[in-house]
Design a protein around this nucleic acid. Structure first.
Lengths: 132, 132, 132, 132
DNA sequence: GTGGTCTAGACCACC
DNA sequence: GTGGTCTAGACCACG
């Protein structure tokens, strides 16, 4: 079962997209694998404190991208191939890294300062580290 | 006059906020200084290919934050003090760096890989360049 | 549910203000009371043949004046106290009466003629009726 | 020369229209007659504290309605016929009286109360009475 | 030419 | 279905 313990809500972007990105990042990280089960719409909406329809929309989009399959009994499971994972990795990792670089460069930060910042925030980030 | 030559449109976040952030990042970088003139609503909207009203919204918010001053019939100019710049720096630099770290960690990237990515994309600019 | 059957569109003043004033006048008249439901944005905009956003603006201003309460997904309802009604009465009745007197005097109408005009148009409703 | 002493600026409606209405009401009142001279654009804009272009726009519209004629030396004079005056009278007097009646009725005011209000505000209105 | 406001339509999150 | 926000285009007052 995919855990949403590390999920942190950000305001300013659609919730259903945050859910999508969270899952895609998990896929890239390898913490979410082919066959993994997702929480039911009802359970996840309760967990995140959002409307079931919002979760439903995220799941629907995941289905349209053929990343999940909805089975009977309201269970959904991940459907991943090596190619899909590579695709997502390409899509997200590159975008995020380039985005960060762009922002930092715009602010006049040097490459050395940027690396120092990464070091600084890497350990005391905002996400709870799973304890192991 | 503040130049928007390096402005790159991103999808997924409100345009007026992108304009806002672009300006704030310029302030942090020091490329935008007290007294600098902003392009008029019409000029900038034509440049970015968006509606004048969208630009106006960004300018209005900047004015509410007292970062610019607008008078009817004349140009809008930046009103910056050392304190304001420091504030913005604190607000943005931390948010961007933390955000990047958060995303990369979620994707299972190690700190060393993250720094390698920064190095890789630092010089390549904003346009995707396949295979170095 | 507040009815907009008697609403008559006037040109030359912002639509959202006309809606605002229509509701305030209803409050003064006593035909709109505490707890009354307003038509939804969509319903009213369709009824008046204007954009939903225009209605929304009127509702937003009413909310800023704490005359209505709006919650997502549910109807908007009037929140009226005796004091608020008295305030609005003071504000509007005086303004309208003074405005009418001002205009008529500017046109060189005598007080007696003005009263005659009031009498003449009082029963004839809002539509021009030639004759008599 | 037409005097603008009694002119009172109202916010919420375009200034050039207020000027137009002021003149039309004067025509109905008979205080503005055929051949009367209007102040120059420059003088009137200074008198009212508005931009010369705004006055220019009002004058242009009056010209389009053939109510004034612009002569050399930047002088403009009223061009009125009995028919035009009757037209304007019909247009304005009726609109204002009906508008006032409509508003007051909407507020639940009885005809008797309305007449009382007219009496009340007739003498102590907002316009300075020319002293003679 | 400048900035400010009004109207408009599409999309989002929520019930 | 509900209200809230973003983008868009036209018009206004002003220099």
């Amino acid at each position: 079962m995919i855990s949403f313990n590390e999920f942190t809500m950000q305001e300013g972007s659609p919730i259903y997209q945050q859910i999508l990105l969270y899952i895609k990042r998990g896929v890239i990280a390898g913490t979410i694998e082919d066959g993994d089960e997702l929480p039911s719409r009802r359970v996840l909406s309760a967990l995140l404190g959002v409307n079931p329809n919002t979760v439903q929309k995220a799941y629907r989009l995941l289905e349209e991208e053929k990343l999940i399959e909805s089975l009977q009994g309201s269970k959904s499971t991940m459907v991943l191939t090596v190619e899909k994972v590579a695709e997502i990795r390409e899509e997200l990792l590159e975008a995020d890294a380039k985005g960060a670089v762009l922002k930092l460069k715009q602010m006049g930060v040097s490459k050395e300062e940027a690396i120092a910042l990464i070091n600084k925030y890497w350990e005391n980030g905002t996400v709870a580290e799973p304890g192991e």
